[in-house]
């Protein structure tokens, strides 16, 4: 049994829209284990993205606790959160979110720059990552010179370059075609498994959910059910 890296306890997120209050997350408790691929699955408006933002410290819960190991994410201030993300977290977004003025290599080095890694070392590490995602000959290209799939590969390289214990992926293949989607999912889960990193994927696509060890199905801000994968990938047998 793996250790729980993230523990979520009775978390609520309520948005106040005028006189109406919207319960985006309504009492969620969940453990995420070290090294697992966990999928937050649900329809649009189910609260899956909000939950990811809460875990990543991009938003604060209205109520409840979120622990990363023994640290309370919900109690951290801006500086502590920046430090937390720099040390422990990698992100992959639906819209890639690369810096348009930087080359692929520079985009990948960015987390290392913020960490203060010396030039030579960070360039080597970033180049290795680009090789791992198969883009080493694109190192000097700017994002607009690359296809969507290539841009997403760069963003995956950026998320993993720092070897963070947790990688969050928010609809990582939303903008990609089916073939690229599978390539990307193989890449991302393969990398996480190889280094025993925890991967939290948000998606509304059941096909993607198949890559996960566990699927957390959300509806109306609540966990509807949790499905555990029993056998190998593609067989689609869940508890």
């Amino acid at each position: 049994m793996e250790e729980n890296i993230i523990r979520i306890r009775d978390v609520k997120k309520i948005y106040q829209m005028g006189s109406e209050s919207i319960r985006a997350i309504d009492g969620v408790s969940l453990n995420i284990r070290q090294g697992e691929v966990c999928c937050l699955f649900g329809k649009s408006g189910s609260g899956k993205s909000t939950l990811l933002n809460l875990i990543a410290g991009l938003e604060k819960p209205t109520e409840g606790k979120i622990l990363f190991h023994k640290k309370h994410i919900e109690r951290m201030d801006e500086d502590q959160l920046a430090n937390f993300r720099r040390q422990y977290v990698g992100f992959v977004f639906q819209s890639y979110n690369l810096l348009p003025t930087l080359t692929a290599l520079e985009n990948v080095t960015l987390p290392l720059i913020f960490k203060g890694v010396p030039v030579k070392e960070r360039n080597e590490r970033a180049m290795e990552m680009l090789k791992a995602v198969g883009l080493e000959e694109r190192a000097k290209h700017k994002p607009f010179e690359m296809s969507g799939g290539q841009q997403q590969r760069v963003s995956i390289a950026r998320a993993f370059v720092n070897e963070p214990p947790v990688v969050f992926a928010d609809e990582p293949t939303g903008n990609l075609d089916t073939k690229t989607t599978y390539e990307m999912m193989d890449l991302i889960t393969g990398m996480a498994k190889k280094n025993h990193q925890t991967l939290v994927i948000v998606t509304h696509d059941l096909e993607l959910a198949e890559y996960a060890d566990r699927i957390v199905v959300l509806q109306d801000g609540k966990i509807e059910k949790i499905q555990k994968k029993l056998r190998g990938k593609g067989e689609g047998i869940y508890e």
């Binding site: 992100f91 979110n97 950026r158």
Partner: peptide
């Protein structure tokens, strides 16, 4: 704005 946001998300501190 977007650029600043990305930098923050991937770990830039407020000081940076």
């Amino acid at each position: 704005t977007k650029e600043i946001g990305i930098m923050k998300v991937i770990g830039a501190s407020l000081k940076d």
